[in-house]
Amino acid sequence: MRRILAVTTFTFRELLRSRLLFVWLISVIVLCGLDFLLSILSFGSILQIFMDLGLAGMEISGLLVLLLGLAVTYTTEMDQKAIFLHLAKPLTRGEYLLGRILGFFLVNCLVVLGMGLVVVGLVIFLGGGTVPALFYDCVVFILLEMFVLTTLGLTYQMIATSMVGVVLYTFFTVFLGHCIGEVQWLLNQEMSHWIKVLLRMVYYILPNLEAFNLKDRLYDPNLVLGWAQWQDILLYAFSYSFVVFLIGWINLEKREFR
């Protein structure tokens, strides 16, 4: 456990100092600017605008930090072969991968929660309103989504042979993961058997990122998040991440470092 923690701390520090948080800072500035602009133009409720844009900003900035982090660390670890030094130590490849995932996730938590604080501040101090409890649930859902994507991204890093590959795989997973609803709709349509088999594979292999999309239902008066819903989403996020982690671990064990 101590070794995993050491890798986590190492990764967290590496990412923080890679100036990735500039992305977060730029996102915050853009968010505040947009909030200000839209509140002047009075498109709907100011509070609603603050929260909608804030939640979208959390997701986008978290994703950007993840993609950039994957690109930066792929260059160091794989291209420049810094990974040799880690793997020659008394550390299993599984411990290394888990430590990296947790380090990335910690940075993502910092980005998402930091943005969340900015949004809460805007709503309370600028908008003079209150933040609904469901907003905090949305933030946790985004964090769960980031956990799944971090595990996937790091697994791609262990499989891919280039930095561009890692970034593209992760990006397309995000894109397709949000289209799972459309895939489900297509499955109910009349079409060739083989296309349906292919779509079914896509449906089961790709993460259902729409399951984490609570922000579209922030103002749904009928939405009640009970223990059963929490259980489902937590189980889905962690079991999916666990399977992906196992695949990454097996690939890392098999990988040769020339």
Partner: peptide, 25 residues
């Protein structure tokens, strides 16, 4: 193990690197 031309994450200090590798041991 010392590889040929070892490469380290440039974001750490020499002491931090040694602390990290020491903790792995």
């Amino acid at each position: 193990y010392l590889p040929e031309l070892p490469y380290f994450s440039k974001q750490h200090t020499g002491r931090e690197l040694l602390e990290y590798f020491g903790s792995l041991h």
